[in-house]
Design a protein around this nucleic acid. Structure first.
Lengths: 128, 128
DNA sequence: ATAGGTACTATCAAAAATGAGCGTACAGAT
DNA sequence: ATCTGTACGCTCATTTTTGATAGTACCTAT
């Protein structure tokens, strides 16, 4: 019983990719994971404007899509680490070009809000 | 009164780009327009599974985002041509890499529907 | 007089995505 | 004994997006 993510309207390959990275928080998550493994609470603090529910959902989808790995340590209190997979790393150049284009777009289009307008300077990723 | 497209949750630059190309039919439209100007009905026939309403909406958004140009000929019956702008052309490499990644993803993930499953072989774009 | 083509608009409805807030098990610290 | 922290799951509500359907103005062809 697949969600709509896998019933792309146009049947277009671009949509397949977008169904993988197109979630509201997925790009942010992925950029953070590109820097290294993170625990759940760690991500939650890095992306404070995402509810934990959303974080969970997006991480689950990223996991079933094979772009991240989930390591569960059988401890109490629980410990779960998220890591980007090798396959997930192939998304890196795409994410970067999407980010760069978005930046360029903001320069030409002044009415597009910039990062940090919601008080979250770590919203996505930096150019450096 | 901006739609949500410009209130990206994470404030992330990637989301800005996705708000421009992320519509259900925008990638398909853009691939077709990369091949040349098209009239409205022409597009409607090229993307038959999109309702005309959707086509109109998506074209309007693409226009206000500056990635396509709309030429209205003061005739009756009306004639309107859509053309990709120079700025819109800067999206081409991104669209191509999104498509290629989606194709690769489909190879590794067999339960992802392929193009043409809805009887629309021209759904998005071809590799050649 | 009727029908067909063009590029839409308008209205209503459904589906999909996201948000808010609470609950949970258990260990360690106080 | 109480409190805090972890990594969620569950339910309800709202926002956002998409679809279905019908209608419009005007010209040409039949």
């Amino acid at each position: 019983m697949r969600t709509k993510r896998f019933d792309p309207k146009s049947g277009c390959a671009v949509e397949v990719t977008l169904s993988v990275i197109g979630g509201a928080w997925k790009p942010v998550i992925l950029f953070h994971l590109l820097e290294g493994k993170k625990r759940f609470m760690e991500l939650s603090r890095l992306v404070p404007r995402a509810t934990q529910r959303m974080l969970t959902l997006q991480l689950r989808e990223l996991e079933t899509d094979g772009v991240i790995l989930r390591h569960v340590y059988p401890q109490v209190p629980p410990k779960v680490e998220y890591e980007i997979s090798d396959f997930g790393r192939t998304l890196a150049p795409i994410l970067v070009s999407l980010r760069d284009w978005g930046d360029a777009y903001r320069e030409t289009n002044p009415n597009v809000p910039s990062e940090g307008e919601h008080g979250d300077p770590w919203a996505c990723a930096h150019s450096g």
